[in-house]
Simulated scan of single mutants.
Amino acid sequence: MSTITSTLLSDGRELIYFDDEDSPAERRSGDAAPDLRGLPARGEPGEVRFDALTGDWVAVAAHRQTRTHLPPADQCPICPTTSTNATEIPAADYDVVVFENRFPSLGPAVGNIPSEPGWGTVGPAYGRCEVVSFTSEHTGSFSGLSERRARTVVEAWAQRTEALSALPGIQQVFPFENRGAEIGVTLHHPHGQIYAYPYVTPRASVMAAAAGKHYESVNGRSTLIGSLLEAERKDGSRMVLESDSFSAFVPFAARWPLEIHLVPHRKVPDLAALSGAEKDELAHVYLELLKKVDALYPTPTPYISAWHQAPLIPSLRDAGQLHLQLTSPRRAADKLKYLAGSEAAMGAFINDTTPEAVAERLRSVAVPPAPSVLEGTNA
């Protein structure tokens, strides 16, 4: 079990250290150094505006224009602090760290946004945005972590999901990772993020409506994603990998050139609801999946790793089930799919690959062994 230590940065933002199980004493973060940067006080939230044409909320966060963008390694803001680079993480070393984003799209205040919006409705951009640093090493990626470190990240996701879900006004918690310059990352350091929204996002709303319709039609006997998994396992042509508690498949109607869903066999609403044994297994299976994705081409594959968790609204939560959607715009070694007219304007996707062929490639790709727990700080 990870050791968890919470502290505050000099502007009042929360920072939480998650130590690997059995991490060496010199890497333990319980007595981490304080943040001596003397940062200015945090600003007020931005705003959310209601789009009456679609029924969606849009966050307006102009302050993010000044956020850090692809700094050199010696100026990375999420590497450990040194004498020449005072960073967001005061400790001289760490395993996994979660902290409130200095340039958040949502927050830092939390609360309820207007419940009956219309044209011209504006509200505070309540919510919370957190950064999850997977390792103190500046280079590498999640797929290069040891299984022990991956387990610590899973624990961090689960713990933060539970904590953020309890905040006033929060309706959806979304852990995700953007990997690769092609996706638009602003930091090279291996990391992900967690957004806690004051509304149910447009994509989650569409999925919740379909899930609710299915759940009602089968009298609560199965969730929609659970039924789809059952069908995919029976068909077999799009399956990628399976374990005792999780299965991964390329969906029948995949939108992206590379798209994989990872689904727990047990109905759970979110990462916080997984058992300890399931978290152990997830760390192993998720690493195997990412290694397969990275082994498809000679260079690392850009991707978005999106953890879909059931919304916190009671009427939507029962029908929801945790699952991962991993997507990449890469359609060949030297080609990317760009969202142009049909996709960007109409939301009508046209896939350049067949799901069955992609699944076959992923099944057959050779996966390198996991790094030893004795190798480097990623151990």
Rank of each mutant, 00 (worst) to 15 (best):
A333I: 06
A332Y: 02
R64S: 01
H214Q: 06
P264W: 04
Y297C: 09
G140E: 03
T161H: 14
P257H: 00
R102T: 10
S217L: 05
E360I: 09
E14R: 15
E216D: 13
S105P: 09
Q193C: 03
Y195C: 07
L8T: 12
V293E: 04
V122M: 12
A277V: 09
I89H: 02
A209T: 08
Y303G: 07
H138E: 01
G107M: 01
V110G: 02
G341R: 00
D51Q: 11
G120T: 01
A61D: 08
E242A: 10
A306P: 03
P202D: 00
A340G: 05
D244V: 12
E281H: 06
N85Q: 03
A59W: 04
T139G: 13
A333F: 07
E343T: 00
D22R: 03
N85M: 01
Y197L: 13
Y286K: 06
L53T: 13
L9G: 03
L8C: 06
T3P: 05
P300H: 06
V60P: 05
G184D: 08
T54I: 09
G12S: 07
G120K: 12
Y338S: 02
S372H: 14
F18E: 04
A340S: 11
S143F: 08
T354Y: 04
S227Y: 13
A125Y: 03
G184M: 07
G123S: 08
A348Y: 05
L224M: 06
H188T: 15
S10F: 07
K267E: 11
E242I: 10
T54N: 13
K267F: 10
I225Q: 03
E44L: 01
A340F: 00
V285L: 03
T186I: 14
E182Y: 14
I260F: 01
R179N: 11
W119N: 15
A181Q: 15
R179D: 07
R148C: 09
G120S: 05
P257K: 00
L326S: 04
T139C: 07
P269A: 00
R27L: 10
G144T: 14
R148Y: 15
I194T: 04
S10T: 11
I304G: 12
E162F: 09
I313H: 13
E47A: 06
G111S: 02
P24L: 15
P371N: 08
A283V: 00
A370G: 08
R179L: 15
P198W: 01
G12Y: 07
R149W: 07
P264V: 00
Y286E: 04
A73G: 10
K335I: 03
L229N: 09
Q321C: 05
H265M: 08
S275V: 08
E100R: 00
A32M: 15
G212N: 07
